[in-house]
Amino acid sequence: MKQIVLIAGSSHTGKTALAQKVLERYGYPYLSIDHLKMGLIRSGYCPLTPESDDADLTAYLWPIVREIIKTAIENHQRLVVEGCYIPFDYRSSFESRYLEQIQFVCLCFSQAYLAEHFDVIQSYANVVEQRLDDSGCTKEQLQRENEENLRLCQQYSCPYILLEYPYHIDLDSL
């Protein structure tokens, strides 16, 4: 595994759970971009809200996250960064000396898995974190987000894990 691991994907794909598993198995600490987002919003340092458009949130958060990643690499620290706000063209944000230390993976549900196991997906929503309100998560929304993420992974040649039944991620494959 490289020094920095970026875990992207839509809501409910298991980004935080995977980051937690990497922490437990390999000792890599992780940064949840959602925590950074909420810290900036709640502190008043960010003009956006949790309901802001994902593109606006990414545009605001990514420059901060990018510099955290660079600092970790320069300090020879390991770090997992997980969240919805990692752009698929992340490579354009780094010089090659940084890219050599970064590993990216996007978690994408297959459309068949979403269609047949949405209730299972929802049952794991609180496996690591307790969501205050998950009522906005719909099967249709996840289908759109995962289809778009898979398209963007292919467009930008980003590695992805297509999640199907049974849901399983081999940590050794990262």
Rank of each mutant, 00 (worst) to 15 (best):
M1L: 10
K2W: 03
I4F: 09
I7Q: 02
I7T: 01
H12E: 12
T13Y: 06
A17E: 13
A17Y: 14
K21Y: 06
K21S: 14
E24N: 13
Y26R: 12
G27P: 06
Y28L: 05
P29K: 03
P29Y: 05
Y30P: 00
D34L: 05
H35T: 14
H35D: 14
M38E: 15
L40V: 06
S43W: 02
S43R: 08
G44P: 09
C46P: 05
P47K: 08
P50H: 10
S52N: 03
S52L: 04
S52D: 04
D53V: 04
D56R: 15
D56C: 07
L57N: 03
T58E: 15
A59S: 14
W62M: 05
P63M: 09
I64G: 04
V65N: 00
R66K: 15
I68V: 15
I69C: 05
K70G: 02
N75C: 12
H76R: 14
Q77L: 09
L79Q: 09
V80N: 00
G83H: 01
C84Y: 13
F88S: 08
Y90A: 03
F94V: 11
E100D: 13
Q103H: 12
Q103N: 10
F104P: 05
V105E: 02
C106W: 04
L107N: 07
S110E: 05
A112I: 13
E116T: 13
F118E: 05
F118S: 03
D119P: 04
A125F: 02
Q130V: 13
R131E: 11
L132Y: 11
L132V: 13
L132M: 11
L132K: 15
D133R: 03
D134I: 13
D134M: 09
T138F: 05
E140G: 00
E140I: 08
Q141E: 10
E145L: 13
E147D: 09
R151N: 11
R151D: 10
Y156P: 01
Y156M: 02
Y160R: 00
Y160W: 05
L162E: 09
L163E: 00
E164M: 07
S173W: 05
